[in-house]
Structure formats: structure tokens, C-alpha cells
Design a protein around this nucleic acid. Structure first.
Lengths: 340, 340
DNA sequence: ATTGGCTGATAAATCGATTTATTGTAAAGA
DNA sequence: TCTTTACAATAAATCGATTTATCAGCCAAT
């Protein structure tokens, strides 16, 4: 009982495979195929559960109904949640997802793009690392639908979905300032990606406006958490005068909390905390940590909507669109009572 | 500058495409193709960056170099981490991953399997929901390599990778018993899956052995966390005498912590806690929560090793193998001093 | 009687590879 | 001299669909 092909169907019904194909692709009317024949074919196909070989189909039509999704790291809860939502929406629209993690590694990403291309994916959803501009540009030049998210590439004209990083960061920093904190540090991953730079600027702007001093610690990303916690620990020991910390991502934040625990620091007595990216860890820490929550449903929705749009309209009147979404600032924990 | 095909290469070099194909597939020697020709072809292919169309290749060979990965929910950190590791290993071995989340929904899973099949994936890695026995069996009957993980299907003879759930659970429960807790509850998701049943049994066995009373709360899974927290809250309010809780999964555990926070209960003063599946939340809770840590690297490694084995050896001498891995019990927080 | 239009269906080309069967030559063996 | 054998490369078949071009029959119009 091996799989049957369109030829088997055709032979069994004494009909040409062309006819079968037309009927199955809803072109029966257009091709003036007799009603009884159509019914007979449909009935039989249904009966034996015939399904066209999608590889052959893709080979001929050039469409694969697969979307390539490239995130930084699928094991990061932020990306995992987004991926999950995108997956759902994509399936509902008849698309499958091939995904991969880039690790923010340009060479790896290049490989993966070429692999996606090789697999003839119909569209790309990418959280791009730095240095990948040319590859993305060439993708677009060749007419592939591409949507970036979480960050974008200033030198390349693409569709992208982002949040208002600068303002979110500015706003959170200002919140600390207004609570009376004077020595507010910003701990983040060293990165020139747009979203990270915007967050950094938001922090700086808020402090500049308030006449406070910057305390910035940039950490080189590593899969080994110890190598993230180490620099944080050193930084905290060096700057004993800090009274508040703003973490640039959930990952930095989580590592930061571990350091704070290990140093036995009291929150918010010794240090007030705020982090970018909300996360169970922040809700359950005691006291709970305020965090900037990205609207993941909205991000996923926007991304997939923009991409499906590009996939369905061959004529692109719009050269490219960018969507900037708002974040929520979830304020938690007892606000410092002795604010100025 | 459209993509070039093997015919373009052949024409350009005045060589037949057969020859090109043989050379590119490393069959030059076997097919006795002249050395200079081989070099000339390889040089040119390298130069123009020609890559065979993998769809055509798959169509002809029947292999897709794609592995289908079905987890319960990719946004669950346990599955996300496993997926990430599997992804890495698969890529290193020339395989790509198509993934999806089953939601433990049998009908959805059935659809997804048929989709994977349709896509001609070479192998399947599945955390199976209940009721999917027949579909898996038919997959195997048709010679598809399948590896289950996290749980297995007793009625189907498959390869699978699991942890020692019963013992892990028994051990963790015993730990609470030995610390002197008398009223130990087990809160879990209602499920007949093997791993959940094994965990439940481990709990029961430990209590039976110790002559303690069972307190079991099974919660119907829901994507809405409120519907998980609600029953937990009710349960805790109903059983004021509880002095310890064992959570059956990280998700239940996280929700449980939220309830405990909202009720203002003190840990471990009012309640001692242990959870299955380790997770940042448990490490950072104060006091930190003891947890059973699954060896995710080992799980991912085993899964992919078993699958690659099946993929590379056409003759399966082994009918099926099951791998049971050990867990780590991470004991945290101050142990109760007034133990019996 | 020939052309043209319409209907209903099909033969053949195509997508881009792999695989099988075949060809042509030159050297070796009978 | 004629047949083998080895060598080097290729033509053609195949995978399973879609798409283009073609055909056969029939009726109306020129």
C-alpha cells in the first residue's frame, strides 16, 4: 500500500492526469470539464485519500508554502513565545515554519539563509544579526518577501516590526529617576543592533535630562552564564554607590538577579531593579521586579500579517513598511517611599 | 542573474549533466571520471556557487534531509531548550528541522503528522499526546524512523528517550518526608501520559511507604494561566493543613508560586516546595525552590543519536530501543531544622 | 465545401535533479 | 582478424506534479 500518484488516479479512472490536475486545482470550470467527471474524480480522490506530492508540486510551481523563521535563540523565552504565535498564525494560513537560531552569528546566519533559499522557502522572518545587510539586500533584490523583527538594518530598506525601544527605555529610566534614585546603572549586552542601541540611548537621554551620571556596563554575550555573571559581579563590586539597575534584556536581567542573590544584596533596599522584557522570573522574584513587557501577540500578528500580505500581492505598491509597537511598563514592588 | 541549474553548468562546460551529477555526488571515482574533468567541474561549480535544487533532489531520491520535530509547546522552556539542542545537532549532521507544537491535541497532532509526511520528512521526533498510537504505528509500519521523547506510548513498539520519572518523583517526595513534612500535596496536570503517571506513582509510592496521606490535585490544562491558578488556590485554601507541595511540571510549579505569592504564604515556613523540571524561576525564587532537573543535553543527544542511527542504517537489527536517563535533584533553600 | 468557433479532454513539455542503460574508443587476449 | 575488457562519458528514463499546446467532434456561418 505505497503512496499513489496522480498517474495512478488517472489510470484507475481512465482519465488523463491533466484532467485530474485541473480538477484538483479548482480549474475545472475554467477548463470546461464535465460536471459528472469532476464529481467522479473528486469522489475517488477523497475515497483513497490521495494527496499530491508537495515536492513535485513545489518543483513545478516554485512555491513551497514554507516560511523560514530565524530567531536569535529559540530557547530564549521571548523568541520562543513569538515563534509559537507565528507558528500558529502561519499554520492557519496554510504555511509551515522552518526555524533556526542564529546565535547572532553572522556567518551562521549567512549559511542558514542560503539553506532556506536552497529549500525554496516562500518568505523570511528574521531577527537579523549585525553584518548581514548584504545578504538580506540580495534576498530582497531577488524578490523574496522578507520581514525583520525585534531590530532592523538601517542600511537596508525592508519591512520590519519593532517596538519603541528608545522611549520604553527612557520611560523606565525616568521612573527610577522619579523615585529618587541617583546612581542608576545600565547593564546590557555589547551590541550595535538597533534595538540595543535605542535602549541605550533611552537610558542616556533620561539621565542626561535629569543631570545624573551614566553607569554603563556592556557584557560580551556568551552561552555560558558564568561569563555573563562574572562581569556583572565585578561591576557591582566596583560601583558600591549604585542604588538602581536597569537591565537591557531578560537574559541579562536573569543573570543579574542571580548575581544579586549571590552577593546577598537586598532589593529594593540596596538596589532598585528594572528590566527590559517581562518574564515569569521577574514576576516571581521577591520583591517582584518591574519590567518593560513587549507585546508579543501584537508583534507576532504584525509580522505574519505583513508577510502574508507580501506573499499574496505580487504587485508591491508599498516599497516597505515599518511597524513600531508600544510596550507596557509593568511597575511592581513597593515604590520607594522616601522619594524626593 | 537567476539561479542556474545543472543543465546550465553542463552546457557551459560542454559536459553532460550526468557527469556533473556524478562528480557532485562524489561518485567520480566509482564512475571512472577523468581527474582533470573532475577538477574542472569542481572549480567551475565552486566559482559560480552552484547549488543543486534540493526539491528536485528530494523528488528523485525520496530523501528530504528534514527532520520533523513535534513538541507539546515550543514556548515551554523545557521544550524550547530541547528543541534548541536538537536543532544544533541536526544541523551539524546536515539535517534541517521543521517543528510544531501539538498542544497535546490529538487531532492537531494527526494533522501535523500528515503534513510532515506530505513534506517527506526523513525522520520524526515526537513528544506524543495520548490517542495518537495508531498514527505513530502506521508511521512505523511504513518504515519511517520515529523517536519519541519525554513520554512514550505503551501500546506501540517504538524507540524512545525518557527520564526515570517514577524514581525521580519518589526520590523528591522522600526528601520531603525525611525533612519531617507530614502533609505533602502533589499538584499536577490531569494526564494519562506515561511520564505524568509515573511521576504520580512515584509520589504515591513514597507516601505509602511512609504511611502518609495522599493529597492530590489534578488540573485540566489550559493556555489561560488563570484557569490553572484558580484550582490551585482553591485547593490550598481547602487544605490548610498542608506543609509541603510537590509540583508535577515546571508550568504547574510556576503557577503554583504565583498563587503562593498572592496568598502571602511563607516558604518554607508555611509550605515547603519541590517541583519537577528545573528552571530559572525556581533558582531565583526566595528562598530558592528545590527541583528535579532533567538532563536536557543528554536527552537531546540521545534523541538525535538514536534517530541518526536509524536514518543511516537501512537494516535495523534492533527492533527498538528505549533510553532512560537519570535526573538531578537540586536541593535548595534552608532545610527545615526541626526535622523529626 | 471550407472555415471558424465551441466543447471536453488529452498529449507532451517542463521543473531540476538522480539513476539506469547505452555508446564509442582503445588496448588486450584468442 | 575478431572478440573481450576496460575506460570515459553520455543519452534517456525517472521522480510526480503543473502548464502549454493540441486534438477530435460537432454545429453554425460564409
Amino acid at each position: 500500500m505505497k503512496k499513489l500518484s496522480i498517474v495512478d488516479i488517472a489510470n484507475h479512472l481512465n482519465v488523463s492526469k491533466t484532467t485530474i490536475s485541473f480538477i484538483l486545482n479548482g480549474r475545472a470550470q475554467e477548463k470546461r470539464i464535465g460536471k459528472e467527471l469532476v464529481e467522479r474524480v473528486q469522489k475517488f480522490v477523497e475515497e483513497v485519500g490521495y494527496k499530491p506530492n508537495s515536492l513535485a508540486k513545489s518543483l513545478r510551481t516554485g512555491k513551497s508554502n514554507i516560511i523560514g523563521l530565524m530567531v536569535e535563540d529559540i530557547s530564549n523565552p521571548f523568541f520562543a513565545s513569538i515563534a509559537r504565535l507565528i507558528e500558529d498564525r502561519a499554520y492557519k494560513n496554510g504555511y509551515k515554519i522552518i526555524y533556526c537560531s542564529t546565535d547572532n552569528d553572522t556567518a551562521k546566519t549567512r549559511d542558514l539563509i542560503s539553506m532556506f533559499r536552497d529549500r525554496h522557502v516562500d518568505g523570511y522572518i528574521i531577527a537579523p544579526p549585525e553584518g548581514i545587510e548584504e545578504d538580506i539586500a540580495s534576498l530582497i533584490k531577488d524578490g523574496m518577501p522578507v520581514v525583520l523583527f525585534d531590530r532592523h538594518l538601517p542600511k537596508v530598506n525592508t519591512d520590519y516590526v519593532e517596538i519603541d525601544n528608545r522611549f520604553s527605555s527612557y520611560n523606565a529610566t525616568m521612573h527610577l529617576v522619579q523615585q529618587g534614585y541617583k546612581n542608576i546603572a545600565y547593564i546590557t549586552f555589547a551590541s550595535n543592533q538597533t534595538q540595543m542601541q535605542a535602549r541605550l540611548h533611552g537610558y542616556k537621554d533620561a539621565l542626561d535630562e535629569s543631570g545624573l551620571k551614566h553607569y554603563i556596563q556592556e557584557i560580551v554575550f556568551s552561552p555560558d552564564e558564568e561569563l555573563i555573571m562574572g562581569p556583572i559581579k565585578t561591576f557591582l563590586k566596583k560601583h558600591k554607590n549604585l542604588d538602581a539597575i536597569f537591565f537591557g534584556t531578560n537574559h541579562v536581567g536573569t543573570c543579574g538577579l542571580k548575581v544579586i542573590n549571590s552577593l546577598g544584596l537586598k532589593v529594593p533596599g540596596d538596589l532598585a531593579l528594572v528590566s527590559f522584557d517581562d518574564y515569569d522570573v521577574f514576576k516571581l522574584f521577591s520583591p517582584p521586579v518591574s519590567a518593560i513587557a513587549q507585546p508579543i501577540e501584537a508583534i507576532a500578528d504584525s509580522v505574519i500579517t505583513v508577510l502574508l500580505n507580501k506573499l499574496n500581492t505580487s504587485s508591491q505598491h508599498i516599497s516597505s513598511q515599518s511597524i513600531i509597537l508600544k510596550t507596557d511598563f509593568n511597575i511592581r514592588g513597593s515604590s520607594k517611599s522616601n522619594s524626593v
